[in-house]
Design a protein around this nucleic acid. Structure first.
Lengths: 341, 341
DNA sequence: CGATTCCATGGAATCGATTCCATGAGTAAG
DNA sequence: CTTACTCATGGAATCGATTCCATGGAATCG
């Protein structure tokens, strides 16, 4: 079963030097002669030697592995984020261990524990929940950590987040100008900072721009597609249904869209729809979807940069990236026929 | 910087036993007394001890980590596959190290090298290229490996793939019955088995059902969105343009759709469009997209099962999963006005 | 009651690479 | 020609957990 693995001793023996010298050559230590450098290099290629990362990490306490915890890989936003962070990390010589919390706190804790056991050099996490014990354990162990997209109250680590407020304000203002009075809001889970912040922004902006602040117009989803369907279904069934929907993330917007299609309602004509998060194909819908857009690639890149600074012992300031409304055709004028039972 | 980490010795000392006994308790070795089990457990929780996975792996040669190499995380097919495989692995107590080859052979090799260095227990890979040296290195080192979605000629490892042929045959037959004569095919890269197989199936079925076999009707893409746009653009610009398009994966279908939109052509009316891979929101397009569907979840689950068998020393047979056409409205009758310059 | 078995336990070797420390060859300075 | 110094090198300790082996006490049997 187990192929007898090639160790640095084999390399050293073939090169005719000691393991110590072979190690020095491999780690680029300048205290080596050109002669032994050349002989070791030859032995490495001949034996196809791959140093055992475990043994190396055990001694040197650096693993060159970072943990990236996202809440749902199937959410295109997090897939893009994972891609961006992973590429940025790779450029710095770090490999990424990806964990998928699946919007579940126990699974989040499970991955964080694994990351700790794997002795990753640092962790980038899109956290959920409050005082999750694993989350606090990171701090107590002084494991370099950066939050991305979301934060946790009372846990003070550098983060990269989106200023959702600006985009949501613009969206609400836009809908108000289009003549909408009742806007249904499909909120994210209130166990996440983004879920809470976006709801607060929506409520404030709705008041400010004269929209209805009827609490029945808010449906609490979980950032996943099915809850978007359920939310749209619920909101359309109200005695006084809304004429526009705003979904707090893209999977819930997709779910809402599915419900609208099933009911034979066309977006932009029978019902306005605006989504938080811009996804490539949202502009390919007919009519194309009005969205609140933010720069995922920058978020991933920035998270890696901050993490490297934390690993380096610094205490970088958190970064907040802008969001903005992109108006397309899905957010038209309310249809007078709608709203009548 | 580095918090003095808690070792098994600290646990043993607090529990008043030897490290050997502590280790036995932790690994569930039956040769332990109820008394020491209880004392060690108490010490573990008090110190919040997380065993160092490196040290453990060094001695026991099992890491409980598997490597999953996908070719593009942003492709929803691979995001779903990663999700399915990761959940199946988690259920077996394995964590997943995700590598993203980004449809690039050097990046694939880079991740495979990393997986080898991390001494993963096994690898699930969607491979590309031919005799990539890293791919061969896996075999020589007898590292348990399973291919998923794709295979590599001349490398004999168990695999889970889709029988693309059945689905493509059905799609071609369907388009022929709808009266299409010239079908443009946006192929995947010929460095992948899926790219080659699907093209072969298309060509054979086209001949069989009396469609044009004009080689100009095939455009070679790279499985990414931009090449789908370029492909559609190219095919529509032919002297004798096709009346239907078939894309070999979903990102290229999205790209093609973008081009059609830009040119003001409506799918299902001005141009039929069929995509390989079913994605949740494809059915939400207007009109909904006709697709060739296969079961991603089963593919991920099966890959993990096969890998466990290989790790267990068995030599499981490869699995081929079915594909089938799902007819929706995007694949209508050809428009007579089209095809005229 | 002595001899054998059973079993929990601790000591010590081990996994593979890194790194401190001592050594000896070679060179420059006096 | 000796002394001081540089510098590549090898030996050995080390990282933290596992596991082989020996030990001693309790239980079991004749």
């Amino acid at each position: 079963m187990t192929a007898p693995s090639i160790t640095i001793k084999d390399v050293a023996a073939l090169a005719g030097v000691s393991p110590a010298t072979a190690s020095r050559v491999l780690s680029g230590n300048p205290a080596t002669s050109a002669d032994s450098r050349q002989k070791v290099a030859a032995a490495v290629t001949e034996l196809d030697f791959h140093p055992n990362a475990q043994a190396r990490a055990l001694r040197s306490t650096r693993t060159n592995v970072i943990g990236l915890l996202v809440s749902d890989v199937r959410n295109p936003f997090f897939a893009d984020l994972a891609h961006a962070a992973e590429q940025a990390a790779l450029a710095e010589g770090l490999v990424t261990l990806l964990g998928n919390a699946n919007e579940s706190i126990p699974q989040q804790d499970r991955y964080l524990d694994t990351f700790i056991s794997q002795r990753v050099d640092g962790i980038i996490a899109a956290p959920q929940g409050e005082g999750s014990s694993s989350l606090r354990a990171l701090l107590e162990r002084e494991i370099p950590t950066v939050f991305v997209d979301r934060t946790v109250d009372g846990i003070d680590v550098p983060s990269v987040t989106t200023d959702s407020d600006a985009g949501i304000r613009q969206a609400v203002e836009h809908l108000a100008r289009q003549g909408h009075e009742r806007v249904g809001y499909i909120a994210g889970p209130q166990t996440t900072s983004t879920g809470r912040d976006r709801l607060k922004s929506f409520a404030r902006a709705a008041g400010e721009f004269g929209l209805s602040t009827d609490p029945a117009l808010t449906y609490f989803g979980d950032f996943q597609s099915a809850s978007g369907s359920a939310g749209a279904h619920h909101l359309l069934g109200l005695a006084q249904p809304p004429t526009a929907l705003l979904a707090a993330d893209s999977p819930m917007a997709v779910g809402a869209l599915a419900t609208l299609n099933r009911k034979g309602l066309r977006i932009g004509r029978d019902m306005a729809l605006v989504a938080f998060d811009d996804i490539e194909w949202f502009s390919l819908l007919d009519p194309p979807l009005t969205v609140i857009s933010h720069d995922v690639e920058a978020m991933g890149r920035t998270a890696v940069r901050l993490l490297l600074e934390v690993i380096d012992g610094q205490k970088p300031a958190s970064v907040v990236l802008p969001s903005e409304l992109i108006v397309r055709a899905s957010s038209g004028t309310p249809d007078a026929s709608l709203g009548q039972p």
